[in-house]
Design a protein around this nucleic acid. Structure first.
Length: 775
DNA sequence: TGCGTGCTTCTTTTT
DNA sequence: GAAGCACGCA
């Protein structure tokens, strides 16, 4: 018996050893899923299977990397690179590049990220004269994405009665045209979006059976992680590939399916037994991660869901503490409470900062939490959010890389044609775009025709275009000879990007410059592999297009509290977890509560969040929270009531701010002296509430837009606006201020509007423009 | 043509 | 509260 098999429990071991035939591993939270996958691959290799015959698919780069590391530790790193292991998108991008000729794409096709896709859709909508209010890029992209994930081509879309009816009903009957043009443009640009990578793989396998056969024979052993998150497109690819050998092992947990919103089909895991009748099922139900109390609480939550595979997840760890529930007065206080708790627990248990995670439903919630941590000098790190690769300066430089590698890439072209400034403005570019559109060619191709086509561009402008193209072409030749870092550095220097950023001495400019340097360093690292041939820029960009948030982790201080969305926390575990913002409309999100299926997905998300915790779990909600720059009242989430009360306890409101009224937010008066604990929190709370700075800046704006001389002295009751003045309101039009009452900041003005009669407005929120001063 | 300003919109989650 | 967009001025 192989020694590593002894480290597994019975079910895990059976799952690892059942290498032939289809197996379904139902892996409850914390049951050692990754372990089974890595051991299974190790086992395959030990049985003498060739690494190049093994295909292992994950959803995130993080998961792939972790698995590689762990297998590397068991069997050595040399073999790893022959394994086909990576995300769905990266693996099939690789295959598509190899087979690109068959589907008429350049092997160096670009990959459009969602921003590129949205920009393209916006452009198309503009060309079609469609109302951008109705045809929102996000929604249109969503529809196209939905279609692609269900293998509906643009022409099928146009001919599908059901889809068209649905589009008509949502008053967007032109989406089919957008889809067609979008497809066309991607094709001429030699670009694929994320969904295309899967969609076109399906097309490739359908249209070229001999190619499918080649990969079927190659991938004798297929493993799929997080099977519950596969969409239809992914499901079909797997089905096709596994059709020959049937050595397919899928691992997943239906209770942790949280990506239906982007097309994941939880049914895939339910239907596995039907799809592969000779299947073996392994149910891993023992949770090694969390205390009994946490596991029980999580079970009591997921029990409320109707659609699920029944499981008996249990823990044999200590019973542990109850879940703590905190009611905070405001979002700021929530952060303050958490920061205090972290310090307390850390001190009590001698923990590291990295033992703590703060989870939230939306990225927007992170800022206030950060603020609280900073005030307490707690180091933290945010996962996700605006990722490094989404920053403007990074995208600019990457756009150069993309265009150099694939000159057809229209979105890259548009991004950098005038960055840094080279005197090509909107008007000139528009003419070029028109030419490209008329001739149905890429922008680059259109630009090469400027000399022969009769176009209303001055010779000087044409020359500028050609200079730009010369610049790009120079680099193109360099790519194959120089290594990635050298080329990248030259691009950053010769294009003037570095110079442009270097001259910007604002803090943002300096930070941008640093980011570029950091990217260059990243490329250097990428080229410093142990392999014989150093990778060129093409390989780098192929790699980087599919990287997202989490990847950049070259931070040497890793002892930090982790902040992230619940979605990105999947697969991770922390000794202590703070789950924040448990409020109706936030979690569950207001977009989901009307639909049972979606609500169940939110509940699974809640389940995922709970099961991240090993020992301590604190759940919190705020009674008021800033949203859209306004304070809103919040109710505690229904999910809190889903937890069996035996496993949760409300913390005594030691720190909560009973003292402050919630209704009269602009009248924050201290009814009694706050205790020491709340004092600091109160001051930050009040500061935020006053929004003095915002108010003053609005006054400044009023000052600027009007010709009146308005005093902005603080303490002046009217804060600038006086009776008798004529003001303009965005909705009610012009009116006269007839009365002012109340103290700053809740000054109320009564205004007689010509159109709308007399209105009382809270000046703080009234959008007023002073037209002229009466006296 | 470029740049600054102010207005509007948007925020659920991500490969 | 940020980012894109339109508008108007230099």
């Amino acid at each position: 018996m192989y020694p590593y098999l002894k480290e597994l429990n019975d079910i895990q071991r059976e799952a690892v050893e059942a290498v032939e035939g289809p197996s379904l591993v139902i892996a409850g939270a914390g049951s050692g899923k990754t372990r089974v996958l890595t051991y299974r691959i190790t086992h395959l290799l030990n049985l003498g299977k060739a690494p190049s015959n093994i295909l292992a698919l994950t959803f995130t780069n993080k998961a792939a990397r972790e698995m590689k590391d762990r297998i590397g530790n068991m069997i050595g790193n040399k073999i790893i690179k022959y394994l086909w292991m990576g995300t769905f998108h990266s693996i099939f991008a690789k295959i598509l590049r190899i087979e690109s000729k068959l589907i008429n794409y350049p092997s160096s096709f670009s990959i459009y990220d969602s921003q590129d896709s949205k920009n393209l859709i916006k452009t198309i909508c503009k060309e079609l004269n469609l109302d951008p209010q109705v045809y929102k890029a996000n929604e249109v992209l969503g529809r196209i994405s939905f279609a692609k994930n269900n293998l509906v081509t643009a022409s099928n879309y146009a001919n599908n009665f059901q889809i068209k009816t649905s589009d008509k009903n949502s008053r967007k009957p032109e989406i089919y045209r957008i889809y067609q043009i979008y497809e066309n443009r991607c094709k001429t640009a030699g670009a694929m979006d994320f969904d295309d990578l899967l969609f076109k793989t399906n097309m490739l396998f359908d249209q070229f059976p001999e190619i499918l056969k080649k990969y079927q024979e190659k991938f004798k052993y297929i493993l799929v992680d997080e099977y519950q998150d596969t969409n239809f497109s992914q499901y079909l690819i797997i089905k096709k590939l596994a059709n020959k050998h049937h050595n397919l092992c899928v691992v997943g947990d239906d209770a942790q399916s949280i990506y239906a919103f982007r097309g994941a089909r939880i049914e895939n895991i339910f239907n596995f037994k039907k799809d592969y009748p000779e299947n073996k099922v392994f149910k891993m139900e023992q949770n090694y991660r969390s205390t009994q109390n946490i596991v029980n609480a999580a079970n009591s939550v997921i029990d409320k869901n109707k659609s699920q595979i029944k499981k008996n997840v249990y823990s044999e760890n200590e019973s542990g503490n109850k879940i703590k529930l905190f009611e905070a007065y405001t979002d700021h206080e929530e952060g303050y409470l958490i920061a205090n708790m972290i310090n307390d627990i850390r001190y009590r248990d001698h923990d590291n900062f990295s033992d703590f995670a703060i989870l939230y439903r939306t990225n927007a919630q992170s800022r206030i939490l950060e603020e609280a941590l900073r005030k307490k000098n707690i180091p933290y790190k945010i996962y996700g959010g605006l990722s490094f690769y989404q920053r403007k300066e990074i995208k600019d430089l990457l756009a150069y890389f993309r265009l150099i590698i694939n000159p057809l890439d229209d979105e890259a072209f548009k991004r950098i044609i005038n960055y840094p400034k080279r005197g090509i403005g909107k008007t000139s570019l528009d003419k070029l775009l028109q030419l490209a559109k008329d001739q149905d060619i890429s922008i680059w191709q259109a630009a090469t025709k400027l000399n022969v086509v009769n176009i209303q561009l001055s010779g000087a402008v044409v020359k500028k275009f050609h200079e730009f193209m010369g610049l790009i072409s120079n680099f193109t030749t360099m790519i194959n000879t120089d290594d990635a870092y050298e080329v990248a550095r030259k691009i950053a220097v010769n294009t003037g990007i570095l110079k442009d950023l270097h001259s910007d001495k604002t803090p943002e400019g300096i930070s941008r410059h640093e980011n570029i340097q950091e990217l260059l360093n990243g490329i250097k690292e990428f080229t410093n592999t142990e392999e014989e041939d150093t990778p060129n820029l093409i390989e780098y960009i192929e790699n980087v297009s599919l990287l997202t948030n989490d990847d950049k982790s070259n931070d040497n201080n890793n002892d930090k509290v982790i902040l992230m969305t619940i979605h990105s926390a999947k697969g991770l575990e922390f000794k202590s977890v703070f789950l924040t913002g448990l409020e109706e409309d936030l979690f569950p999100s207001k977009f989901t509560v009307s639909n049972i299926t979606e609500l169940e997905e939110e509940r699974r998300l809640f389940y995922v969040a709970i099961t991240r915790a090993e020992k301590n779990l604190c759940i919190s909600y705020a009674k008021t929270r800033y949203r859209w720059g306004q304070l809103v009242d919040c109710r505690p989430s229904r999910f809190i009531r889903d937890i069996n009360p035996d496993f949760i306890e409300q913390e005594s409101p030691l720190l909560t701010m009973k003292n402050y009224k919630s209704k009269n937010r602009f009248n924050l008066k201290q009814e009694s002296t706050p205790d020491k604990n709340t004092e600091k929190s109160y001051s930050s709370f009040k500061k935020q509430n006053d929004k003095t700075s915002t108010f003053n800046s609005r006054l400044k704006k009023i000052n600027k837009t009007s010709s009146t001389n308005i005093s902005t002295t603080e303490g002046n009751n009217t804060e600038g606006i006086k009776t008798g003045e004529i003001v303009e309101h965005e909705r009610f039009g012009q009116g006269t201020v007839v009365n002012i009452e109340g103290d700053f900041p809740n000054t109320k003005a009564t205004i007689e509007f010509n159109s709308a009669g007399t209105k009382q407005l809270l000046l703080k929120f009234a959008k007023l423009k002073v037209i002229k001063k009466y006296n």
